[in-house]
């Protein structure tokens, strides 16, 4: 069919296709770097266990909601609105990640101190046995 088209028609077809592809790309989520960053931040928060951490769950939910809304805005061509929502989502996800990380660090501190206490107790018990035996 391509061979039957005149040169002008071919040019017009190519221009139309390019415009169509460009339009589709601008509607896709990948077109906005802010949305890509937000998705990356959300993935990092989820991988850090933020979804299971009560202190971080709210922020994960907010990030997901803002990302969905950003996609909706982008779909109707509201780029500025989508950028604003994507930035919100990114920061929500970053806060979620830090909240989960802080809880993890605090838990690690408590576990380490608990174990230290047990080890110290046992060392004291052994020392006591040794002292008693040496005294006999």
């Amino acid at each position: 069919m391509w061979t039957y088209l005149s040169r002008l028609e071919r040019c017009l077809t190519l221009v139309g296709l390019s415009a169509l592809l460009g339009g589709c790309a601008s509607l896709g989520g990948g077109a906005l770097p802010e949305m890509g960053r937000a998705r990356t931040a959300l993935r990092a928060a989820e991988e850090a266990g933020a979804s299971a951490e009560p202190a971080a769950q709210m922020y994960v939910a907010l990030a997901q909601e803002h990302l969905e809304r950003a996609s909706g805005r982008l779909a109707v061509g509201d780029r500025a609105g989508a950028v604003g929502l994507a930035r919100r989502a990114e920061l929500d996800a970053e806060v979620a990640l830090l909240a989960a990380r802080e809880t993890g660090l605090r838990d690690a501190v408590h576990r380490t101190l608990d174990d230290t206490g047990q080890i110290s107790d046992e060392a004291a018990k052994i020392n006591e046995v040794a002292r008693r035996r040496a005294g006999r």
């Binding site: 830090l98 660090l105 380490t112 174990d115 080890i119 060392a123």
Partner: peptide, 25 residues
């Protein structure tokens, strides 16, 4: 997080000391 990291470092030092004490005992 910075505070928690420092607390964890301090806890690890205490843990290492306690472990050494246990070994000595």
């Amino acid at each position: 997080c910075a505070a928690a990291r420092e607390a964890l470092d301090a806890a690890r030092v205490q843990h290492a000391q306690a472990a050494r004490s246990l070994e000595e005992a």
